[in-house]
Design a protein around this nucleic acid. Structure first.
Lengths: 235, 235
DNA sequence: CATTGTGAAGTGATTCACAGCA
DNA sequence: TGCTGTGAATCACTTCACAATG
């Protein structure tokens, strides 16, 4: 703590919780949350940064630094109270409230996402499934009926939807994205292999199977080359 | 070019392509590749770094710096030859060869992945679909029949599989991962919400819907708070 | 003369290492 | 004594800005 007033957009007189948790830290908080939930389910009451770090797959210095951005929730010489820390992280992420989500594009992937149990489990409520294909409209998945994409505006308004998931083909993605944004959605999770252009206030995260495979292929190739070089050198 | 011999692990006398492309750059090469393919399909022969950067959703300085790690493939005052650069990136990533892939866990998600067209399209060949549930074994998806997970070892050996995709429930993931590794797979793409422990020589990348949603929720909450603070200030 | 390729500066994330505290 | 919280050091990535050049 000590000094450290300021920080990027630090307005003077703002004493609410420090603004600006580093993006890399934000991306790890959900991992810590999962680790804590798993410890809690195993009736572990207290855990050291080393324990937590192992469960989360990071090193303990990084974990402690990350947690230090949220506040001082540990006890020196002891560790962290699992349930207390879990609550603090959940609050920080914003999981003490529910978020309404729509999925647009109910092909194979959209269907799989709609059936994904991890949705409801942690603060995310599926408000609607939408598709532009009349043949799919009306189909029932879980406890939802697929609606026409024309209903998007109304669905977003009536359910205060803040997060949209795009699972359409690449060609349709930008158009769907524009509709989501103009309906008022300001966070988008994009599964389509396309670059989305959005206004500044909208967040986009992308998940791209093909890119992940290509990254793995690159490293795989490098490993093979290294092995080849080694063998050549050994001759 | 000018000077710049060396680079981190630069062994003297090693004039083959520079070793050690930054990880952040590697992660963007597939995006550039896609942008180039799309330009090429539109019969664009030449593109400047600014054109490419727009198509890829990055800024042009970053794109130029990234490409500079691969070699000098552009022409000053002109730009890049689309097809030539596309080939160079494909080669760098390792897409001039085919990679065999297995998917383990043929639930909703595994099924969606198995049907994903982007697989075959770019150098990835589905060698097998595996599941531990006898009820699923034998089911036909696309042109593949689901096999028992007991066949993993043989499938990996016979098809020289280097990449494994885990789409099982979290509880099964580490066990499947161990089997993949002991069968000789050294790159893993993990869709299960679990931290995988692997030996050093194995690469793991994870794709986690729930984490992505939570990251979006965090930012969404921050935006809402900011708005609240602004309104309070305006009163 | 438009555009690349790249040193140098700037920014952000990780790791170290230890003072401070229960 | 054991473990957290954190400055300081290091490492990685991005951006700037411009000399080099087809």
């Amino acid at each position: 703590m000590t000094s450290a007033r300021s920080r990027k957009s630090g307005r003077a007189g703002d004493d609410r919780a420090e603004r600006g948790i580093p993006e890399a830290t934000v991306a790890r908080l959900p991992v810590y949350l999962r680790a804590l939930t798993s410890l809690s389910d195993g009736d572990v009451a207290t855990a050291s940064s080393a324990d937590l770090a192992t469960a989360a797959g990071v090193n303990s210095a990084k974990l402690r630094k990350d947690l230090s951005y949220l506040g001082t929730y540990g006890t020196r010489g002891v560790g962290y109270d699992v349930n207390y820390l879990r609550y603090q992280i959940a609050r920080e992420i914003g999981l003490t409230q529910d978020w309404s989500v729509v999925i647009v594009g109910i092909g194979n992937l959209g269907r799989a996402l709609a059936n994904y149990s991890g949705f409801a489990s942690r603060g995310f409520r599926l408000a609607a499934l939408l598709d532009s294909d009349g043949a799919r409209v009306g189909e029932v998945i879980g406890d939802l009926k697929v609606s026409a994409v024309e209903d998007l505006e109304a669905v977003v308004r009536d359910n205060a939807v803040a997060i949209g998931v795009i699972a359409t083909p690449a060609e349709a993605a930008q158009d769907v994205c524009d509709q989501l944004v103009s309906a008022g959605v300001s966070s988008i999770l994009n599964f389509a292999p396309a670059v989305l252009v959005v206004p500044d206030h909208v967040d986009v995260r992308k998940v791209d199977l093909s890119i992940e495979l290509q990254i793995l292929a690159y490293h795989e190739q490098r490993k093979a080359q290294e092995l080849g070089a080694l063998e050549a050198g050994a001759v």
